[in-house]
């Protein structure tokens, strides 16, 4: 390694090595916990049941399934929490000092009055940080998915739309980690002080995360599941319920349940007949929508990250001193 890459490696190797060791420990722990889980599933020939309703899975040994879930859910949740928090950790401890500390201590001046230009200096240190971030986030996201997949969307276990999972796995988790790094880098340039940049990064990344979690369901329209007449609605299964139930009249118009026919049995039948309702509906996001949500969020994070990096490149020359 030569020049700015050597410098970047020399300055970031402690973070990279510490992160690598932490990941290795995580991977070993996940491998051990997952192999135990798989052993129980195989030894007892557990039939995996998808969805909430145990009555839908008569061949599943529910007690055993509950035990497997009980033994593993906390672990997956902890790993998921770590993976979901990774963008904040990376943004605060890697992104914010990436330029911020150099400007604060004046070492950027020292580096940039040697042989290399600003582009090579910024490019190499950001590339190393971004590469390590992407690799680390991808490994962590894959570990979450690997452990969770055999017992995914089962009974009262963890579902694809849970924050611990959705934010912790898939391409969106990797994109969000890169976004965190970009926010930290930009904040470091903006404040030229490491501590202030750290605080700003924490607030921005957490804020954006919370915002996206709260508006996620608006991005694609849910699937309307219709059951004719009084037939009870299809079990929600592994889908993500929107909480929108109701009735349809002959023309297909929707009548939400919070205003119409909050009854059951004979009363319901009479009420439906009175209003001319011919079917019931339930709006859900089927588990296949996981990928649509993931790609949308991946795109949002990546576009934001690229925009921030471009802004940093444009502004850096003017904020060196």
């Amino acid at each position: 390694m030569k020049g700015t890459y050597w410098l970047a490696w020399r300055q970031q190797r402690a973070l990279i090595l510490a992160g690598g060791i932490a990941l290795l420990i995580c991977a070993a722990w996940v491998a051990w916990r997952r192999s135990e889980m798989m052993a129980v599933i195989h030894d007892h020939h557990l039939v995996i049941c998808k969805g909430w309703d145990a009555s839908e899975c008569p061949r599943t040994d529910t007690d055993l399934a509950e035990r497997v879930l009980r033994d593993n859910t906390d672990g997956i949740r902890a790993l998921g929490a770590l993976s979901a928090a990774l963008p904040v950790i990376i943004g605060v401890f890697w992104g914010a000092p990436l330029i911020g500390r150099e400007l604060e201590s004046g070492t950027a001046k020292l580096a940039l009055t040697q042989g290399v230009g600003i582009r090579a200096w910024l490019g190499s240190r950001f590339a190393l940080a971004a590469g390590s971030t992407a690799a680390g986030a991808a490994v962590l996201a894959a570990l979450v998915a690997w452990w969770w997949a055999p017992i995914a969307n089962m009974l009262d276990g963890l579902y694809w739309h849970d924050g611990f999972l959705f934010n912790a796995t898939g391409p969106a988790a990797v994109a969000c980690a890169l976004f965190g790094l970009a926010v930290g880098t930009a904040a470091g340039l903006l404040f030229r002080r490491t501590m202030a940049a750290m605080g700003c990064t924490l607030a921005v990344v957490v804020g954006i995360r919370v915002l996206l979690n709260s508006v996620r369901s608006d991005w694609i329209s849910p699937t309307r599941r219709v059951t004719p007449g009084m037939t009870p609605r299809t079990p929600v299964g592994s889908a993500w319920s929107t909480g929108q139930f109701g009735y349809l009249d002959r023309s297909g118009r929707e009548y939400p349940i919070d205003r119409y026919c909050q009854f059951s049995g004979a009363e319901l039948k009479r009420c439906m007949a009175d209003h001319g309702f011919v079917a019931r509906y339930h709006k859900v996001y089927p588990s296949g929508d996981f990928w649509a949500f993931q790609y949308i969020e991946t795109a949002i994070y990546l576009v934001a990250a690229v925009a921030l990096v471009v802004a940093v490149c444009l502004a850096l020359r003017r904020r060196l001193v």
Partner: peptide, 16 residues
């Protein structure tokens, strides 16, 4: 520029 940087060495007031 690269050419100018080659000629110069700079010792700033480095705070740390």
């Amino acid at each position: 520029t690269d050419a100018a940087r080659r000629h110069i060495a700079f010792l700033a007031q480095v705070g740390t």
